[in-house]
Protein backbone atom coordinates (compact mmCIF):
# COMPACT_ATOMS: atom_id res chain seq x y z
CA UNK A 1 0.00 0.00 0.00
CA UNK A 2 1.36 3.42 -0.95
CA UNK A 3 0.77 5.96 1.86
CA UNK A 4 -1.80 8.62 1.07
CA UNK A 5 -1.44 11.01 4.02
CA UNK A 6 1.36 12.79 5.84
CA UNK A 7 1.01 10.64 8.99
CA UNK A 8 1.29 7.52 6.83
CA UNK A 9 4.39 8.90 5.12
CA UNK A 10 5.86 9.69 8.55
CA UNK A 11 5.16 6.13 9.70
CA UNK A 12 6.79 4.70 6.58
CA UNK A 13 9.91 6.85 6.95
CA UNK A 14 10.10 5.90 10.63
CA UNK A 15 9.90 2.22 9.70
CA UNK A 16 12.58 2.62 7.03
CA UNK A 17 14.98 4.27 9.51
CA UNK A 18 14.31 1.49 12.01
CA UNK A 19 14.79 -1.30 9.48
CA UNK A 20 17.75 0.06 7.53
CA UNK A 21 19.70 1.45 10.48
CA UNK A 22 18.71 -1.38 12.85
CA UNK A 23 17.37 1.07 15.45
CA UNK A 24 15.08 0.07 18.30
CA UNK A 25 11.33 0.61 18.35
CA UNK A 26 11.77 2.95 21.31
CA UNK A 27 14.36 5.05 19.54
CA UNK A 28 12.37 5.61 16.36
CA UNK A 29 9.16 6.15 18.35
CA UNK A 30 10.89 9.08 20.06
CA UNK A 31 11.66 10.85 16.76
CA UNK A 32 9.81 14.11 16.19
CA UNK A 33 10.17 16.80 13.53
CA UNK A 34 13.15 18.39 15.28
CA UNK A 35 15.14 15.18 15.86
CA UNK A 36 18.51 15.63 14.10
CA UNK A 37 19.49 12.81 11.72
CA UNK A 38 22.51 13.23 9.44
CA UNK A 39 25.58 14.00 11.53
CA UNK A 40 23.71 13.14 14.74
CA UNK A 41 22.84 9.47 14.23
CA UNK A 42 26.08 7.47 14.11
CA UNK A 43 24.30 4.73 12.13
CA UNK A 44 23.53 7.15 9.31
CA UNK A 45 26.76 7.23 7.30
CA UNK A 46 26.88 7.87 3.56
CA UNK A 47 26.40 4.17 2.71
CA UNK A 48 23.39 4.08 4.99
CA UNK A 49 21.99 7.26 3.42
CA UNK A 50 21.90 5.44 0.09
CA UNK A 51 20.05 2.52 1.68
CA UNK A 52 17.56 4.78 3.47
CA UNK A 53 16.75 6.80 0.36
CA UNK A 54 16.39 3.76 -1.87
CA UNK A 55 14.19 1.97 0.65
CA UNK A 56 12.02 5.10 0.96
CA UNK A 57 11.71 5.11 -2.85
CA UNK A 58 10.61 1.48 -2.84
CA UNK A 59 8.05 1.82 -0.07
CA UNK A 60 6.59 5.14 -1.20
CA UNK A 61 6.73 4.40 -4.92
CA UNK A 62 8.72 7.58 -5.65
CA UNK A 63 11.99 8.43 -7.41
CA UNK A 64 14.51 10.71 -5.72
CA UNK A 65 17.08 12.36 -7.98
CA UNK A 66 20.64 12.44 -6.68
CA UNK A 67 20.54 16.22 -7.24
CA UNK A 68 17.78 16.47 -4.64
CA UNK A 69 19.90 14.76 -1.99
CA UNK A 70 21.61 17.25 0.27
CA UNK A 71 22.33 17.86 3.92
CA UNK A 72 19.16 19.92 4.39
CA UNK A 73 16.70 17.14 3.52
CA UNK A 74 18.51 14.79 5.91
CA UNK A 75 19.09 17.28 8.68
CA UNK A 76 16.07 16.37 10.80
CA UNK A 77 13.32 13.77 10.83
CA UNK A 78 10.85 16.54 9.98
CA UNK A 79 12.89 17.66 6.96
CA UNK A 80 13.09 14.11 5.63
CA UNK A 81 9.40 13.37 6.08
CA UNK A 82 8.43 16.74 4.57
CA UNK A 83 10.59 15.97 1.55
CA UNK A 84 9.18 12.43 1.24
CA UNK A 85 5.62 13.71 1.56
CA UNK A 86 6.22 16.37 -1.10
CA UNK A 87 7.15 13.60 -3.55
CA UNK A 88 4.50 11.09 -2.46
CA UNK A 89 1.45 13.25 -2.02
CA UNK A 90 2.14 15.58 -4.97
Amino acid sequence: MIPESKPEVDATVRAVLKDVLALSDDQVASFDDTTPLFGALPELDSMAVAGVLTEIEDRLGIVIDDDEVDGDMLETFGALTTFAASKTLA
Binding site: D19, V20, L21, A22, E43, M47, A48, G51, T54
Partner: peptide, 10 residues
Protein backbone atom coordinates in the same frame (compact mmCIF):
# COMPACT_ATOMS: atom_id res chain seq x y z
CA UNK B 1 14.05 -6.23 7.80
CA UNK B 2 15.71 -5.68 4.42
CA UNK B 3 19.06 -7.16 5.46
CA UNK B 4 20.59 -6.09 2.14
CA UNK B 5 20.29 -2.43 3.17
CA UNK B 6 22.15 -2.64 6.46
CA UNK B 7 25.56 -1.09 7.08
CA UNK B 8 26.81 -4.45 8.35
CA UNK B 9 26.05 -8.06 7.48
CA UNK B 10 23.21 -9.20 9.72
Amino acid sequence: RPLWRGSEPD
